[in-house]
Amino acid sequence: MDAGAAAWLVILAALLLANLPFFNDKVFAFVPLKGGAGRKAFPIRLVELTVLYFVVGALGIALEGRIGTVFPQTWEFYAISACVFIVFAFPGFVVRYLRKSR
């Protein structure tokens, strides 16, 4: 896999995984909530979003390692990538919390 395809794969995975907590009511899309509760609470969605951020980061590091040398990153990289991940989650947030149900 070349560098361009790997970059697009990470971007696509980040877009999909950032919206995953908002488009289903199971934890990580696999584990149903205990007690038959119908909806996940917002703090559970935030924890899920944080874990999925690290999953996308691990995927990016793995793909970078397959291409060549994994370069060390500083805090600025992680701050910017976390902000981009949150921006990617915005469509799911809008659909879940801001759209009026009819």
Rank of each mutant, 00 (worst) to 15 (best):
D25I: 00
I80K: 14
A5M: 11
G65F: 06
L59D: 04
F30M: 13
R39T: 06
T74V: 09
A79E: 02
V31T: 10
V31R: 13
P32W: 03
A13D: 02
K40V: 02
G38P: 02
A58C: 09
T50G: 15
L20Q: 11
W8F: 12
W8T: 02
V70G: 08
E76I: 09
T69N: 11
A89S: 15
F88E: 04
L16V: 14
F54Q: 02
L98I: 08
A3L: 11
F22R: 04
R66I: 01
I86E: 03
L15I: 07
E64H: 07
K34N: 08
C83P: 00
L20I: 03
G92V: 09
R39H: 11
F42T: 10
Y97L: 09
E48M: 08
K40T: 03
D2S: 14
L17I: 08
G57F: 09
D2Y: 04
A13I: 06
A3R: 15
G92S: 10
K40Y: 06
T69K: 13
V95T: 07
A29P: 04
T50I: 10
I86C: 12
A79T: 08
L98G: 01
G38L: 14
V55I: 11
T50Q: 00
G4R: 15
L16T: 03
W75N: 06
V87R: 02
E64Q: 14
F23Q: 10
V56E: 01
F77K: 07
A62F: 12
F54A: 07
Y78P: 00
A7C: 06
A6K: 09
D2E: 12
V47I: 14
I11W: 12
P21W: 05
I86T: 07
I44G: 08
F30Q: 03
S81E: 11
T50W: 12
G60L: 02
Y53R: 00
F88Y: 13
V31N: 06
L46E: 01
F71T: 13
V84L: 15
L17Q: 01
S101K: 15
K26Q: 11
A37P: 00
F93T: 02
I86G: 08
L98E: 07
L9W: 04
D25V: 00
A14C: 04
F54L: 11
S101G: 13
A13M: 10
Y97A: 08
F85Y: 14
K26H: 09
